[in-house]
């Protein structure tokens, strides 16, 4: 109760900070509808075009005798659902990071967290190739946790903390290192080309077994992020301000870090490296709905899911019959966005 009223007070006191609940509601409802539509499209379009009505039937009145229904059930549904889940996870991980660190350049990809997960997965591919997915995901978490710990450790060890630019540099160096190590392993054990596709993202091989596992992890992570959202809003006002209001900054940051590594680690273990969703979506969302993370988190989730489902659909349509890595497609929008942020010199927030 107490934190609630104080939280409201903080909002009122800072005039520049604004929220737009109306815009947020529009995004939530409209975004959900669009997401449902694009997921249906994503299921229906592919190597074999399947009508939307068949998609509807396959989902609600499944008939195992029809090949179309088989394709939809066993291949396309898990893929599309995985895209939506991981898109939401990356976006929320990015917005939690940006909010907690007040760093406009925070993104699980840019900061090397994805690379950490990828490195552990490369090790698994080379040395223990027959792991079950349920075990593999733990290695992915461990890798993400290692990279997160590295970045956090650097932030707390370095004098005066890490500025956005130095954090970005640190992240790019950490990912360069981890990528070099993964590449070394890949070269030595000749798992390179298969690893590479996955390193740059793709949901082509996703099956239910994986979706079943990440559903719980990502679902839990998103829920936790929602519960934490109020405190993230306060942290985004600055550590001192938040501490002054009575937020336990250390604990909130620790919980936030755990949420980030679960969301990023689970996503990377399924769709590989996808940068930029966690960078772009929170920025766009913040622009649309204002500064309250109670709105930013759910809206980011929906927009992130929408972006990734559409990008995955695009990746299949660029050259029909073969897959373009979806990460490359997202980079086409993501790189100009990063350039735009770069020319603003990482200001804002």
């Amino acid at each position: 109760m107490a934190t609630h009223s104080i939280g409201e007070g903080a909002h009122a006191s800072a005039k520049k900070l604004r929220t737009r609940p109306l815009a947020a509601s529009v995004i939530l409802i409209g975004g959900l509808a669009l997401l449902a539509l694009s997921m249906a499209l994503s299921i229906s379009i592919g190597a074999k075009a399947i009508g939307l009505s068949a998609v509807w039937d396959a989902v609600w009145h499944f008939n195992g005798d029809l090949t179309d229904h088989q394709i939809i059930r066993s291949l396309r549904m898990p893929r599309t659902i995985a895209c939506a889940l991981t898109g939401a996870a990356f976006a929320v991980a990015g917005s939690v990071m940006q909010g907690m660190t007040r760093n406009p350049l925070a993104d699980p990809g840019l900061l090397g967290i994805n690379a950490g997960a990828g490195f552990m997965l490369a090790i698994c591919f080379a040395f223990i190739p027959h792991l079950l997915f349920g075990q593999l995901i733990w290695m992915s978490f461990a890798g993400a946790a290692g990279a997160t710990a590295l970045i956090y450790g650097l932030g707390s060890l370095s004098r005066g903390g890490l500025t956005p630019v130095r954090l970005a540099l640190a992240g790019s160096a950490v990912s360069a290192l981890l990528l070099a190590l993964s590449e070394g392993i890949a070269l030595k054990y000749r798992i390179g080309q298969s690893l590479d596709f996955w390193l740059f993202g793709g949901a082509a091989g996703v099956r239910w077994a994986q979706v079943d596992v990440i559903l719980w992890w990502i679902g839990g992570g998103l829920l936790a992020a929602m519960l934490l959202a109020r405190y993230i809003t306060l942290l985004s006002l600055g550590d001192e301000t938040a501490a002054g209001i009575g937020v336990r900054v250390g604990w909130i940051k620790l919980i936030g870090a755990v949420i980030i590594l679960i969301l990023a680690g689970a996503s990377v273990s399924v769709v590989g490296f996808v940068s930029f969703i966690g960078l772009m979506v929170p920025h766009i969302t913040r622009y649309l709905v204002g500064v309250s993370y109670r709105w930013i988190v759910p809206c980011s989730a929906i927009l992130g899911a929408l972006l990734f489902v559409l990008a995955d659909l695009g990746a299949r349509m660029v050259r029909p019959g073969s897959e373009t890595p979806v990460g490359a497609l997202i980079a086409i929008i993501g790189v100009p966005f990063l350039l735009y942020l770069a020319r603003r010199e990482g200001r804002e927030l």
Partner: peptide, 14 residues
Amino acid sequence: VLVGIAVQAGISAA
């Protein structure tokens, strides 16, 4: 620094 990071990301996508 920042533009360098962005351009590298683009090139590695290519």
